[in-house]
Design a protein around this nucleic acid. Structure first.
Lengths: 255, 255
DNA sequence: CCCAGTATTCCACTCAGTGGAAGCGGGCCC
DNA sequence: GGGCCCGCTTCCACTGAGTGGAATACTGGG
């Protein structure tokens, strides 16, 4: 089946996935050549496979001819285990209405938080989190809220790595971070002050089902309005509790 | 390359896509056997490919072992041309806050409307539209709003087909529907009364950029509150205009 | 005009992928 | 308990779908 056959038999499916995987938040659009380079698939092979993916609208082209993730893939993605989000959305909504701030929902995936829903208005400060986006756990409110309820071994291994430090306020010292998590558990919510982005701070609460944090709700505000955070804690906890109550014991943790 | 080789050479990529395509709103989870049946891929081939897709979390398994669309695919989908949605969301948000009703955003894809964003609160009536969902154009508010601004040849070919009739109120008679569309163009918005679902009615406005309707905003309310719709028209049009003003002339029409 | 980067086409070779069939496992009914 | 049905997993010999290097065709900038 192989002509040149230098590669030790990569399966076709893996090449298709490698092509798709080449797209990420930093590179949402790529030229064919870039795509081939990033995915490690030979150009001519990429060319053929991409043509097929385009036909299916799994990929599509920008006006300028660069490739993007296509509509069909988005549609398909909407079918992913969506129990949690559809359940939680009305509560996020309500939280937004009472606070007027950026509100979002995140789950843990691996060692990162994955943002699965977001509600924002016209006046809200633009923030880094993006539906489908990922951030490290320790500098984010939702991350700390989730991490605080993970089992000890998990936290230990999380702290053992070299932790990123996006701002000077980021807490990376293991001892201090561990104490921080204890505080989160004690009070039931997490706070951050410019730990991920200079200029914004946040509050977040875990959604506890059977004692496990299946997700977390977070609010982000401009840091000059940090003193307003305490006022937001109450509605935040109400929303988290509401979602938890509505959640079936073992719903998939997906979006 | 084929042993049994009965099929006239379907490409591997097409099989992968067929497998993914077997999932839809009505069948979000499938057993391996169903998946193979629905996609027309031989069971043993499906088995192998699915294993690969699972490894990538393109597919994942329910607690009960059935297959679903996986997290990675959802994530990937979030990368799809998202200009319109991120732009429009704050306006949908605002519209929700002022009206308290189900609010959604849809684009045309082929002969159907594709719902690309939705905002709903705790009190809102549950409705059929779903982010990523599709419905025919003629019985929905957003559909009529979009159809009204399509070129003549398109409308003509749309009306030429046999039109579905989900409720007795659905307008399927071509002449009457054409007049309806003229009214929509004249007044700048569309209304429906139980044309898609008994018990709910809607108002919708197109988002016009350079005279073309790139998307439509809709509001759905319970039909016993139909008389409140007129009150909602104004904020609806404001939102549509706001989104249109913010839209660049040729943004991708995707989610 | 040439050159560099990117896209597309070609083609002879061959092994990755194929799929029918057989082997499991476990839930249900008689 | 035993037989049956249904879905999942594994096996394997055959072969044409897929391969990828290279040649060719764009395209735009200098």
């Amino acid at each position: 089946m192989a002509g040149g056959s230098r590669e030790p038999g990569r399966t076709v499916a893996s090449k298709v996935l490698a092509l798709l995987g080449a797209f990420d938040a930093a590179h949402p659009q790529l030229t064919l050549t870039d795509l081939a380079r990033r995915s490690g698939v030979p150009l001519s092979t990429a060319h053929r496979l991409v043509a097929e993916l385009e036909e299916w609208q799994a990929l599509s082209r920008d006006p300028d001819g660069r490739l993007r993730v296509g509509l069909r893939l988005w549609e398909l993605g909407q079918l992913a285990p969506g129990r949690l989000v559809s359940l939680a959305h009305p509560w996020l909504q309500e939280l937004f209405v009472t606070t007027g701030e950026n509100v979002h929902l995140a789950v843990r995936d691996g060692l990162e938080v994955l943002y699965v829903d977001k509600v924002y208005g016209r006046r809200a400060v633009p923030i880094v989190s993006r539906t489908g986006g990922r951030l490290p756990m320790h500098p984010t409110g939702v991350g700390k809220a989730l991490l605080a309820y993970e089992p000890d071994w998990f936290v230990k291994s999380y702290l053992a790595r070299k932790l990123e430090r996006p701002t000077p306020h980021t807490i990376t010292e293991p001892g201090r971070l561990a104490r921080e998590l204890a505080t989160v558990r004690a009070q039931g919510y997490a706070l951050t002050y410019e730990e991920m982005t200079l200029g914004s701070c946040s509050a977040a609460a875990p959604i506890l089902v059977d004692g496990r944090a299946v997700a977390a709700v977070g609010i982000v505000v401009a840091s000059r309005r940090a003193r307003e955070l305490p006022r937001l804690i109450d509605p935040l906890l109400t929303a988290a509790a509401g979602i938890a109550r509505a959640s079936p014991p073992s719903s998939g943790s997906g979006p």
